[in-house]
Computed example of a mutant assay.
Amino acid sequence: MDLQLKGKKVLVTGGSRGIGKAIAASFLKEGADVGIVARTKYELEEVSKELDVRIYTNDLTNVYQREQLITDFINDFNGIDILINNAGASYGKTVSETSPILFHKTMNLNFIAAVHLSQLVSQHMITQGEGVIINISSIYGKEAGGVPAYNASKAALNSFTKSFSSEVIKYNIRVVGIAPGAIFHPNKEWTRRIKNDPDFLDNYAKSNIPAGRLGKPEEVGNIAVFLASNKAAWIVGSTISVDGGQSRMNY
């Protein structure tokens, strides 16, 4: 299927690993021009050896570096068509064990950064008459489970997706979201769990996921390119669960 994304200018935050890297690769396969941003220069340089992307080293928790990122990207690519707000992290444990500072730290990266970047790129998208913003959320932004600070930030992101979509669709800008379930990629948390229990992945999947396995990053990438295309033109404000049946919601 030709998704007609060739030449589209795409910025992926948190693009140096996992879901973000897979999303970048999916857009490249469709012929898009892609830039990725992360804080770790070494990881970005490693990705750039593998994928034909332009890299940006910015701290997205810093308001001025967010502004500089969008300025640099638009100057480098002569515009922006698609923003993927994927950067995120999880801090703290239970509510009682998580300080307000860690709640704030989580919200700043997972929610405030996405809101601000969306505001910045929407100004350019309004001028050009179209654009797509995709917010990478989580099934735990829709239901209980996981770490409370992370869940709260993703719930806020889902709400923002709906609110902002209603505001900018009149300018032909679509704002949509993806809520992944458990997606395996070798990050520190998955590595720690496997080290403690070599059978952890199989046991977790059998207990929690009707499909019987964890998701793959490229399976999120496949949904991202579809949502960014005109094939998904009538999807506005929705956050789509991509979870192998893991979530317990009726929608």
Rank of each mutant, 00 (worst) to 15 (best):
R54L: 01
R54V: 00
R54H: 01
R54I: 04
R54Q: 01
R54A: 00
I55E: 12
I55G: 07
Y56R: 10
Y56D: 09
N58C: 15
N58G: 07
D59T: 15
D59I: 11
D59L: 07
L60Q: 07
L60I: 06
L60T: 01
T61Q: 00
N62W: 00
N62A: 03
N62Y: 00
V63M: 12
Y64G: 15
Y64E: 12
Q65N: 08
Q65V: 00
Q65K: 07
Q65P: 10
R66Y: 05
R66G: 02
Q68P: 12
Q68K: 15
L69E: 09
I70D: 01
I70Q: 06
D72V: 00
D72E: 13
I74Q: 11
I74H: 10
N75P: 05
N75A: 12
N75D: 13
D76V: 01
F77M: 02
F77V: 04
N78L: 06
N78W: 03
G79K: 12
G79Y: 05
I80P: 03
I80R: 04
D81C: 02
D81T: 06
D81S: 03
I82G: 01
I82C: 00
L83N: 00
L83K: 02
L83V: 07
I84A: 10
I84W: 08
I84P: 08
N85Y: 09
N85P: 00
N86G: 04
A87F: 01
A87E: 03
G88V: 06
A89H: 11
A89Y: 09
A89W: 02
S90G: 03
S90N: 06
Y91W: 06
Y91R: 11
G92E: 04
G92I: 05
G92M: 07
K93R: 10
K93T: 13
K93Q: 11
V95F: 05
V95K: 08
V95A: 09
S96G: 09
S96A: 02
E97C: 07
E97Y: 04
T98G: 10
T98H: 13
T98P: 01
S99E: 09
S99G: 14
P100A: 14
L102G: 08
L102M: 01
F103P: 12
H104N: 11
K105C: 07
K105P: 09
T106F: 04
M107S: 14
N108T: 10
N108S: 08
N108W: 07
N108R: 10
L109I: 02
N110T: 07
F111R: 01
F111M: 05
I112E: 08
I112K: 12
I112G: 10
A113Y: 05
A113R: 02
A113G: 08
A114P: 09
A114C: 11
A114S: 14
V115P: 06
H116Q: 13
L117I: 02
L117F: 02
S118Y: 09
S118M: 15
Q119K: 15
Q119A: 10
Q119T: 14
L120D: 11
V121W: 05
V121M: 06
V121A: 09
S122N: 14
Q123P: 14
H124E: 15
M125K: 07
I126P: 15
I126M: 13
I126S: 14
